[in-house]
Amino acid sequence: MKNKIKELRARYNLTQEDLAKKTGVRRETIVFLEKGKYNPSLKLAHDVAKVLKTSIEELFLFD
């Protein structure tokens, strides 16, 4: 599953660590999320989308 986390994170000038802190997860989780190697729970997807001021549908690209 592809996503736009890296792109939006850069837009808001956030580091992976910042995003991790804001969503209450470890930095490694954000790394795996960005690489598309981890499918997050609905709650984490919602939290990340909220921090990046977007919706889950726009953040995650379902093939």
Partner: peptide
Amino acid sequence: DLKQGQPVEDELS
């Protein structure tokens, strides 16, 4: 992890 202010556990771990 604690020293770096990271949670010790999250959903991935």
